[in-house]
Amino acid sequence: MKITASPRSPEERKRDVLARLERELDIWVASADADGVPCLVPLWFLWDGQAVWLSTRATNPTGRNLTDGRRTRLAFADTRDVVLVDGEATAFTAQDVPAAAVGAFRAKYGWDPREDRAPYSFFRVRPVRVQAWHEVHELPQRHLMRDGTWVV
């Protein structure tokens, strides 16, 4: 993408974001503890059409932060094709996670976190705000979702 290229329309950006949510394997997960100490890790994820599902050990910083703080920012690794998703996380134990989420993890990655020796939690992240842009010329129309509603 060159800065001289025409900006994508908001509708095109939304399509691109949804396509990435379907095809990407990893997403950066940012969280913070009660003291504001940040934590940033890449995790496998899946998109169910409404929310992002994550799974991580309940005892690691991300697991604790998402359980306690419930807020997160998700991002893909590409700095020239930025996607930021601010969301609210709901924690699920291995016992109460919906079967569809576990089945989707198994289908996408060949892995069921519940079968790991260490206890894993699951987190459903409902997007509240989504931004997407290529370079500075797309910044003015970067907001695709606000207050949990797509604006395009």
Rank of each mutant, 00 (worst) to 15 (best):
A32H: 04
T72S: 13
A51H: 04
A51K: 10
A99Y: 03
T62K: 12
D48I: 03
F45Q: 04
A58R: 15
P38N: 12
W47R: 03
W28E: 02
N60E: 15
C39Q: 13
I27K: 07
A100S: 14
E24D: 12
L74R: 10
E88W: 10
T72E: 03
A77Q: 13
L25R: 15
A77Y: 12
D33E: 02
L46Y: 05
E22P: 00
A100Y: 08
G87T: 06
L84A: 03
T93N: 11
T62P: 00
A91E: 10
V83D: 02
A94W: 09
A32I: 01
D96H: 11
V82N: 04
R57N: 06
R70L: 03
D35G: 13
A89C: 07
A30G: 12
V85R: 00
Q50P: 00
A77L: 03
P38H: 15
T93W: 11
A51Y: 02
V52N: 02
G69A: 09
C39D: 15
G36S: 10
L74E: 10
A91G: 01
I27V: 14
R23Q: 13
D35K: 13
L40C: 15
R70W: 02
S31Y: 08
G63I: 02
A99H: 09
W44Y: 08
A101C: 09
N65W: 01
F76G: 10
V82F: 09
A99L: 07
C39R: 07
S31H: 06
T93I: 12
Q50V: 01
D48W: 12
A94G: 15
P38G: 08
A94R: 10
W53Y: 13
A58H: 14
P61V: 04
L21P: 00
W44C: 08
R20W: 06
W44D: 05
T62S: 15
V29K: 01
Q95V: 10
F92W: 15
V37K: 14
S31T: 15
P61S: 10
V52R: 03
